[in-house]
Design a protein around this nucleic acid. Structure first.
Length: 112
DNA sequence: TCCCTGACAGAAG
DNA sequence: CCTTCTGCCAGGG
């Protein structure tokens, strides 16, 4: 079917689910991939709702500098960092080390 | 219905 | 380098 156009939130969820293991991405990259590069704030807002979803690895999503801006929303302050390190992503002082190296560029082929 | 807030990003000074 | 402001969309009071 043609229903390629989904809700803003759902687009975010679908993209975040595609983040490979041991990789991280930024809100702006996701926002841009869904067609709203300036809606990075909405991405964060979507993640807030996605937090109730298990298929959405929000811990792999950080801000543009690799800072775990939303780690406080994972319940425990170490939950997000722990999850990242468990995947091989080194985190120091609430931010991802070698963020540029672990950064995963989301494909824009999500939405035709 | 109007106003404010929000897990961001980017530009300007 | 750091600080300040604006823009984006949606939800809550």
């Amino acid at each position: 079917m043609i229903s390629g156009e989904k809700n803003f939130f759902e687009k975010v969820y679908e993209l975040v689910r595609q983040i490979p293991y041991g990789r991280v991405t930024s809100y702006g990259a996701i926002a841009k991939a869904i067609g709203s590069p300036q809606s990075a704030r909405m991405v964060g807002w979507a993640m807030n709702a996605s937090h109730k979803l298990e298929d959405v690895p929000a811990h792999r999503v950080v801000n543009r500098i690799g800072l775990l801006s939303g780690k406080h929303h994972f319940g425990d302050s170490n939950a997000m960092q722990n999850s990242l390190e468990a995947e091989g992503v080194l985190v120091s002082d609430n931010k991802v080390e070698d963020f540029d190296k672990y950064f995963w560029d989301p494909p824009v082929n999500l939405n035709p």
